[in-house]
């Protein structure tokens, strides 16, 4: 692998970051057009670099398509001035990523992503955001807050993660192939894996979750339960029951009682 390749990739991250920074909604003169061009150029070059160095594989075209959809969708999530469109682009990102997971043979994760994120969490977002104004006239919608710091933090984190997964110099992690091999042929899973792998990996995944990772899973569950209880405790407003001034005329009974039918 070319030694300068990692730095090229970091440079592309920087270009993409600059594009996002320019495309973020702001007051004053909009720089969305040059920002979008810069961002698209970064995505295009990234695809070109990946296409040059990646090994040929089945379904690579779909992989590029969904990756590009996910990247552009993610860019629109942060740059679109209308909140409801942001949620929709987020849904697009989720669906694209789940398609990528399908291409990787992880159907269960793909569907779990759709059910949990697109089906539940983002519906809740949409639920709240529908109450926002349709024409984006509120300053909070039009202007993004701390765009430079946000872009810097975001792309630095992304560079670090990219370094973890691939052979980039920011981290000395096992290569992705090794990771996959370890996951597929880990010792703990070997008892349940081989025959089930033939039929797909959902059963193997379930078995792994319920044997090797059962403590993690249950801890996560308890954590969510605690969060749920805490949220209810915070949200529950105690309203004192008002005393009716007239005992003959109890509360809520001031006028004529309207019979429901």
């Amino acid at each position: 692998m070319n030694a300068s390749l990692p730095y090229l990739i970091y440079a592309l991250f920087a270009v993409g970051g600059a594009g996002i920074y320019l495309a973020l909604p702001r007051s004053g003169r909009s720089t969305a057009v040059p920002g979008s061009i810069l961002g698209l150029a970064a995505v295009g070059m990234f695809v070109a670099v990946v296409a040059k160095y990646a090994l040929p594989s089945e379904g690579a075209g779909f992989s590029y398509l969904f990756s590009a959809m996910a990247l552009i969708g993610a860019g629109r999530v942060v740059t679109h001035p209308k909140a409801v469109y942001c949620v929709l682009y987020f849904v697009l990102v989720i669906i694209s990523v789940s398609m990528l997971l399908v291409l990787q043979g992880a159907e269960f994760l793909a569907i779990a992503l759709i059910v949990v994120y697109a089906g539940a969490i983002l519906v809740t977002y949409a639920f709240v955001l529908m109450l926002s104004q349709q024409s984006a006239s509120v300053p909070g919608d039009v202007r993004s807050r701390e765009p430079f710091l946000a872009v810097l933090a975001g792309f630095f984190t992304m560079a670090c993660i990219a370094g973890q997964v691939g052979d980039l110099p920011l981290a000395a992690a096992p290569s992705s192939e090794q990771v996959i091999r370890l996951a597929q042929h880990g010792e703990a899973d070997q008892a349940v894996m081989p025959e089930m792998m033939v039929d797909g990996n959902t059963a193997a995944m379930g078995a792994a979750l319920m044997t090797k990772y059962v403590v993690t899973l249950e801890t996560t569950g308890v954590l969510l339960l605690v969060a749920l209880v805490g949220a209810m405790a915070v949200a529950k407003k105690r309203v004192p029951i008002e005393e009716s001034p007239d005992p003959e005329k109890p509360l809520g009974q001031v006028g004529r009682e309207a019979a429901p039918f």
Binding site: I114, V115, V123
Partner: peptide, 16 residues
């Protein structure tokens, strides 16, 4: 492999 979950996932998108 996830036939049943597929129906669940698609159904959950129906509200959009």
């Amino acid at each position: 492999d996830i036939g049943l979950l597929y129906v669940l996932g698609v159904g959950s998108l129906g509200v959009y």
